[in-house]
Design a protein around this nucleic acid. Structure first.
Lengths: 116, 116
DNA sequence: CAAGATGTATAGCAAAGGCTATATAGCCCG
DNA sequence: CGGGCTATATAGCCTTTGCTATACATCTTG
């Protein structure tokens, strides 16, 4: 979950000027608000985000790094799925599921395939 | 987890003549014995396995169907990963992680790729 | 056939990730 | 500047998947 959260926060940061709020995550993830609040507490505990009470959710340096790495992995997988003929709709969804379970070795094979 | 368990039981059935026992799953999954027992209770509740108390673990018809479908999916993914150049060691492990998260659509794309 | 080894069951605990209901803080507007 | 709306926090509950410690049953073997 941690990766999903930081990746999402990272993306949302790029889409809205005045910061990411809990409610944005609630909407994007389609879960109940207390679920997001609780998860953010864990992420905070793990040093991935910083939450201004009742205000914005910010990524720490560590969180941002993880987000960038996750996003890159995500995009590699989406590109790869598209390349083997998976329609765009499914590619996005499947990548979400897959991205936390592929080794660096398999990612390399995907990149190799893409640059063939 | 359900799929992992029934798939494993199904495979172990083929490897040993006198039935699958809890201890076989404990060893294969590398978890503590009470974890397996408890999970088997849930699978039993869900009608996937039948447990002879202190004896064998059997698949129900429903469990066997799920196991076969899971195994087939697993093998498709392993073959596919091997085909794009992932070494055998990683292919097995990654397939385990991936197999619960790919849509039928993506599986079809993999099969298409394999029969190209 | 009794002991010890092996296997299984049971009790109790924890963390993650969900939920609902409710309280409270902050913001905007009349 | 007070009320209401919106956002966030808090309390309390649930299930899954893990664990350890311990009790009990079964099997094997001397």
């Amino acid at each position: 979950m941690a990766e999903d959260y930081v990746e999402l926060i990272y993306r949302l940061e790029g889409e809205s000027a005045d910061g990411v709020r809990t409610v944005d995550l609630v909407e994007a993830l389609a879960v109940a608000q207390p679920t997001v609040t609780k998860t953010l507490e864990r992420l905070q505990r793990d040093g991935l985000v910083e939450v201004e009470p009742r205000r914005r959710v910010l990524l720490t340096a560590k969180g941002r790094e993880l987000a960038q790495a996750s996003l890159e992995r995500h995009e590699t997988i989406v590109s790869f799925l598209l390349a083997i003929g998976v329609p765009a709709t499914h590619a996005e969804l499947d990548a979400e599921g897959i991205e936390h379970h592929v080794s660096e070795t398999t990612l390399m094979a995907m990149r190799r395939f893409l640059s063939r």
